[in-house]
Each structure stands twice: as C-alpha cells, then as structure tokens.
Nucleic acid binder design. Sequence first.
DNA 1: TTAGGGTTAG
Length: 462
Amino acid sequence: MVRNRMLERLSTKLLNVCIASFCKVNKLEKAESVIIDAIRLGLLPDVVTYNTLINAYCRFVGIDAGYSILHRMGEAGINPDVVSYNSLIAAASRNSQISRSLDLFDEMIQRGIAPDVWSYNTLMHCFFKLGKPDEANRVFRDIILGDYTPCAATFNTMINGLCKNGYTENAFMLFRKLQHHGFVPELMTYNILVNGLCKIGRLGTAKRIIKEIGGSGYVPNAITYTTVLKCCFRKRKFEEGLELLSEMKSKGYTYDGYAYCTAIGALIKIGKIKEATEYMVQLMKTGIKLDIASYNTLINMYCKDGKLEEAYKLLDEIEKEGLECDKYTHTIMIDGLCKAGNIEGAIRHLKYMNLMGFDSNLVAFNSLVDGLCKVGRIDTAMKVYKSMEVRDSFTYSSLVHNLCRIGKYRKASKLLLSCLRSGMNILKSAQRAVLSGLHYSGFRGEAKKLKSKIRMARILNH
DNA sequence: TTAGGGTTAG
C-alpha cells in the first residue's frame, strides 16, 4: 500500500514534469491531452499540475482562462494554494490590471489562503504601478518587520518602485544602507539603479555604478547597455550612443530589437529619418523577430516620413505575424494621420481603436487637437479640448501656440492662465508667444499682468 | 516576483 502510494506520487511528479515542458512552449492542447490520458490510467493531477496550467493559461491565453482553472481545480476536489493565486495576481499586474490584482489578493485572503513573500512583493509592485509609493512602503515594512523573509526580489521591487515614482535619491540611499547591512546586489539591482540614475540625468553616477558591477563579479548585460544607450541619446550625445550600439553588436548584445529601436526612436526624434531607416535595414538583416514595440517604432518612422502606405503595410504584417496592435500602435497611427492632415482618417482610427477595446488616450487627443489646429479648424480643436477629461502641458502648449499663430493672443492668454491654475507647466516658447503677441498688438498692460502671474505660478507650482 | 526599447506640443 505504502509502496503503491510512493509510486503514484512519483508518477504524478513525472506527469507534472511532462505538463511543465509542454506549458513552457505554449503547447497547451498537448498538456491537456496528457492530463486526460493520465486520468484514464488512474493518475490524478495534483495542485502542482493545476498551478502549472494556471501560469501557462495566464501567459499564453489570458487571465480569465487562468482563472477558470481555479474552478476546474475546485471541481476536481483540489484546493488552490498561494502559488495558484500568486500566478493570477502577477498576471493581472503584468497586464496592467492592477485593481484586479488587488481583488485577487483579497479573494485569496478571504478563502483562508495565507499570502507569502512573493504575494507581498507583487502587492508592493502593484502599489508602485498605481503611483502609491506610501502604500508600497507600508507593504515593504510589513515584509521586513513581519514574519516574512525578504528575498532579492523584495529589495529590487522596492528600489525600482522608488525610482519609477520619482524617488531615485531615496532608492540610492536605501541601496547603500542595505549594502552596509550585508545586502549583496544582483545584476538586476544594479540595472534598476543605473536606469533610475540615467532617467534623472545622472549619467556620471550611473557610470560609477557600472564600474561597481565589474567589482562585484557580474558583467554588464544587454539591459545595462540599452539603459545607458537611451541616456546618451536623451543627453544628445548621439555619437557616444551610436558607438555604444556598435559595441553592443560586437558583444552579441543585439539579440533583440531593444537597442536598435532605442537608436531608431532617438534618430526619429531629431528628424534624422534617413539614418533611422538605415538602422531599420540593419535590424531587418539580423532576422530578429520583431515584437509589437519594434513594429511601433518602425510605423512611427514611416509616419514621420509621411509614408502612411508603408505604415499600413506594417499593420497588415503585425496581423500576419499573429501579433496584436496595442494602444501605442493606434496612437502612432492617429498622430501620423493628423500630421498628414487627414483629420477624418484620424477620427475614424480613434473610433476603430475604441472598437478594439482601447480607451481614447490623452496622447491621441492631443494629436487630434494639434492636427485640427494645423488645418485651421481651431474652433473644433477647442471643442475637443473642452470635451477632454484629462489635459496636460501638451494640450495647452499646442492650443496656445496655434492661437498665437492666428493672432488670437487674448484667447491664448486666457488658456495659458487656466493651465497655470491647474498647476501645469507650459512650454516656454508658448509663454513667450503670448507675451510678445499681447505686447505688440497693443495689450501691453495685459502682457505685464500675465508676466507677473506666470512668475507667481512658477513659485507656487514648484 | 523584480531590470532595457515604442505615442503628442516648440
């Protein structure tokens, strides 16, 4: 009897190894048929089998599919455990469905399943993604001071979250304090910090950290390089950036599209479309399989070059490759159509995007507002502006500039003031346009008054 | 479970 149970356990273990190998390569049907065969032979799947399935369904099909496995488990008389829920919570977080992650976390607790350190790491990550660093910090303290043993991911998530929420200095201090208390950083920890420092323009400190990587026994990887590459372009050090890219090529670090797309994106931004195209050709020659972000970069390049037909061809290619357009793809297309003066086409695409399940986003609306202004339909642009629930400095800068362009300085001034009241910045060039416009069109008093308001706003908004 | 690339104003 005991021997039989041992054999059964061994067989379930083998079954799970088999299921895991199929799940890893997205052969879900095969995995399911193996489970059916195993049941026929009297071998029952256990919690590990189902957890493997949850993970794979979440990854390759969707969270709903993953969640349905929970019911299947229940029907088979197997209770989900913390691993089952961790997979679902993480999958929702990966898909930016943060409120769903939090709901799943609550559901797990309500079912009497105790969260582990992984659950809390993900919860912390969710709070950071929601822009709630205080809540994340509370979770972090609970892990450290509670009954849990933090792991490297706990510290990495905390440091990364602080950087992403604008607290890079605090992240750096935490990193040093932790090191002082014996924390040994992983390459990922260094990369997180390098990225944070690069984003706030501290390239020098980032380079010092990279030197520390060498001393720690790690070798900077493709991620480290791409991070610095991006920073070089941001700081307009184009030659240094392109040299870094060729160094990456020689090291074999261009095995995916990230570095190429960083360079192409930067070249597009400064209007060097010809050079960007050259890098696109290089990227194509490598045979690297393009993902949606790479396609978006290339579509943007064609749009900026006014080659909308080529952009549409890439949209077809995305579909042929079995990829799905995302909010970036649609927004890039909307902007491309606006820039080409095809407002009706842009509005059609906006509706199509909604139909595909994407909410209209701020960037798409800003493009539309700007496009309408550029074709002289400023009243319609104002109508769109009024209908927008969220506005940012792009919305205001665009409208203010274009109102000045047609000599409507007082209207521009009114808009500029409402922007300042909302605590937002506006391009200096837009401010100057209003001030000098008012001044030279006979409204010197108003210009003076506006100037002092701008000065006050500068004090209050900082 | 955590790290790099993709969208808008001048």
